[in-house]
C-alpha cells in the first residue's frame, strides 16, 4: 500500500473517530445559547465599560436576551443602540436618558489652601493615601487627573487650574472616571440636571472657610430659601430637585458654590 493511501486512510479514520467524539460531547454538554445574545452583542459598542451594571457587553447581552435586563441600559450606545436591541427583543425601547459625569469641586489651585509640597507618585490615588498631597481640604479635588486617565472616550480634561472639566458631547456616562476618583467628587447625573452645590466637603463650617474660598459652609441659606429643591446632609447642602432650586437661593449663596451650568 502506498504512503498516499495510508495517510489518506489514517487521516480519515482519525477524523471520523474524533468527529464522533466531538459530536457526542456536543450533544452531551450542549449549552443552549440564545442566538439573540450574539445579535445583541454585535450591536453593543463593545467597550466593556460596565455602565449598564454588568461586567461587560457580553454579560449585558446575555442578561437582555434572558429578559433580566431592559434594553436601554447601555448609556454609551444611547438611544440608537437601545432601539436596535429592543427591536431584536421585540420590545419598545424605553427612553434612554443621557447621563454625564459632573465634577463637584471648584476648589482649584487658586481658590483652595495648600499647606505642603508633595513628593511622591503623581496620581490622585497615591496622593490621597499620603494625606492629600498638601491640599488642606480633605474632600476636594487633588488634580492629578486619575479621572482623565480612566476615560476611554477622551471626554474629561484638566483645566489649567487643576480641576477636571467634562466634555458633555463626548461623555457617554460610563462612570469610569467616577470610579477612579479617590475622593468621590465625580457623580453620574442625567444631562438635563444643571444645578448643583459644587462641593463635597463635610468639614465643619469653620474649617471649610479656612481651607477653601469656594466650599459649602453649611450656612443653610439655600435650604431655607428653597426647601423643596435642597436639603442638608451633615455639613453639606445637596440639591435634591434641580427644578425647584430658586434663583434667589442661588444668588444668596455666600460662597457662590451653588450655581447653574
Amino acid at each position: 500500500m502506498s504512503a498516499a493511501v495510508t495517510s489518506l486512510l489514517v487521516m480519515g479514520a482519525v477524523a471520523l473517530v474524533f468527529g464522533i467524539i466531538i459530536s457526542l460531547a456536543y450533544s452531551k454538554f450542549r449549552v443552549e445559547v440564545d442566538p439573540r445574545v450574539e445579535e445583541i452583542f454585535d450591536i453593543l459598542p463593545g467597550v466593556n465599560c460596565g455602565a449598564c451594571g454588568y461586567p461587560g457587553c457580553q454579560n449585558y447581552a446575555e442578561a437582555v436576551a434572558s429578559g433580566a435586563a431592559p434594553p436601554n441600559k447601555c448609556t454609551v450606545g444611547g438611544a440608537e443602540v437601545a432601539e436596535k436591541v429592543a427591536a431584536i427583543m421585540g420590545l419598545e425601547a424605553g427612553e434612554v436618558e443621557k447621563v454625564v459625569a459632573r465634577v463637584l469641586c471648584i476648589g482649584d489651585r487658586e481658590k483652595s489652601v495648600w499647606t505642603a509640597d508633595y513628593d511622591g507618585p503623581q496620581s490622585c490615588a497615591a496622593a490621597h493615601v499620603a494625606g492629600g498631597a498638601g491640599k488642606a481640604c480633605s474632600y476636594g479635588c487633588l488634580g492629578f487627573g486619575d479621572c482623565v486617565e480612566a476615560c476611554p472616550f477622551d471626554a474629561i480634561h484638566m483645566n489649567d487650574k487643576g480641576i477636571p472639566v467634562v466634555d458633555e458631547e463626548k461623555c457617554t456616562g460610563c462612570g469610569l472616571c467616577a470610579e477612579a476618583c479617590p475622593r468621590d467628587i465625580i457623580i453620574m447625573e442625567p444631562v438635563k440636571n444643571r444645578t448643583y452645590v459644587f462641593c463635597r466637603s463635610q468639614d465643619t463650617p469653620k474649617r471649610s472657610r479656612e481651607v477653601c474660598s469656594v466650599s459649602c459652609i453649611a450656612c443653610g441659606i439655600c435650604v431655607r430659601l428653597a426647601p423643596e429643591g435642597l436639603k442638608m446632609e451633615g455639613n453639606l447642602a445637596v440639591v435634591i430637585d434641580p427644578e425647584k432650586v430658586t434663583d434667589q437661593a442661588i444668588e444668596k449663596c455666600p460662597t457662590k458654590v451653588l450655581f447653574r451650568i
Binding site: S7, L8, A15, G19, I22, S23, L24
Partner: peptide, 21 residues
C-alpha cells in the same frame, strides 16, 4: 448537526491525507 460535523471534519481530514500523501 452531529452528522454534518462528522462529515465535514472527515472530509477535510481525508482531503488533507490525500494531498499530503
Amino acid at each position: 448537526d452531529s452528522l454534518r460535523m462528522i462529515a465535514v471534519l472527515t472530509f477535510f481530514a481525508v482531503l488533507s491525507g490525500g494531498i499530503l500523501g
